[in-house]
């Protein structure tokens, strides 16, 4: 893969173009393809992830499964450049978004984070802001100016897509922290969607939630696929089977760095795994 070098003018034009695009459309942003090429990760000199290569196709949901401690979350955080914020963290390899390495020298982290959004395991709405303000927080942070009506539209659209609109539409001005766990997580999804990312990364989004909220969020994911590329880390194999089209199985042997054992379509991984370790995991012999 070649890495395109942009000059400053091109970058400026890119920024302008994206801003212009955002003013016109509501939600028709092309989903992107994410590709990891021989990605490795270190924490304070310890190798924790080794040579992970994976293609996450556009507009599809890719699930990352495997026992805890295999590096799935670390891999996910490398995909949107959150990994490097941890002290002592290092990485190797490339991550291509639509063919461009997001770690190239000229790439701005702010741009990467706008195009690749993230939802975390523990819901984290901003308590100092109201529900409405939470949804558009990403836009405010990116200094994107929208008119008042546009703002209202965006709030409504995003909350609808994340399945929260009907429950909160009468109390958009109340603080964002005063919701139940499931509602908070849906608010975080709406917040991530408001900046219109091409990719949405989800790090075990339902593991802290009750089954009812989990159901709603899985529905949301299914509705979103086709519009946004989703990469979801999950412990729950049934969930992976339910929502994803592609799956990658991570494993780390005792004292060894983690890596992908097998990846492919979800149907193939679950019904006809090639590697015996995959078979053992999906049949519940360890977890």
């Amino acid at each position: 893969m070649t890495v395109k070098e942009s000059t400053s003018e091109n970058l400026f034009a890119d920024v302008q173009g994206r801003h212009a695009r955002r003013e016109d459309t509501i939600s028709t942003v092309a989903a992107g393809t994410l590709e990891a090429i021989e990605v490795s990760a270190w924490f304070s000199g310890n190798l924790v992830l080794e040579d992970v290569s994976l293609v996450m196709p556009a507009s599809k949901v890719t699930a990352l499964i495997g026992p805890s401690g295999c590096g799935k979350s670390t891999f996910l955080r490398i995909l949107n450049r959150m990994h490097e914020s941890t002290p002592g963290a290092q990485l190797g390899g490339e991550v291509l978004l639509d063919g461009e390495d997001i770690y190239a020298r000229h790439q701005r982290v702010t741009e990467v984070r706008k195009r690749i959004g993230m939802v975390f395991q523990k819901p984290n709405p901003f308590p100092a802001m109201s529900i409405g303000e939470n949804v558009v927080a990403g836009l405010a942070l990116a200094h994107v100016k929208v008119s008042k009506e546009r703002r209202g539209e965006i709030i409504e659209t995003c909350l609808t897509r994340s399945g929260l609109w009907t429950e909160v539409k009468d109390r958009l001005a109340t603080p964002g922290g005063a919701l139940s766990g499931g509602q908070q997580q849906r608010l975080c999804i709406a917040r991530a969607l408001a900046v219109e990312p091409e990719i949405l990364l989800m790090d075990e989004p339902c593991s802290a939630l009750d089954p009812a909220s989990t159901f709603v969020i899985e529905q949301t994911i299914q509705e979103l696929s086709g519009e946004v590329t989703i990469v979801i880390v999950t412990h729950n194999m049934q969930q992976a089977a339910r929502v994803s089209e592609q799956t990658a199985f991570f494993l780390a042997a005792q004292g060894e760095p983690g890596g992908i054992v097998e990846s492919g379509s979800t149907a193939q991984i679950f019904d006809d795994p090639q590697d015996p370790r995959t078979a053992d995991y999906v049949h519940g012999r360890f977890g």
């Binding site: 949107n80 450049r81 959150m82 914020s85 701005r108 982290v109 702010t110 741009e111 990467v112 984070r113 706008k114 959004g117 993230m118 975390f120 523990k122 984290n124 709405p125 901003f126 308590p127 100092a128 802001m129 927080a137 990403g138 942070l141 990116a142 975080c188 917040r191 991530a192 900046v195």
Partner: peptide, 29 residues
Amino acid sequence: TPMGEREAALALSGTRFGVIRTVVLPFGR
């Protein structure tokens, strides 16, 4: 400042000032 909120702001904005403005200062009021 709770780490969860910091990460949310970081994932949204990519800038340290974004995190400060949205999370650290309101929390530290």
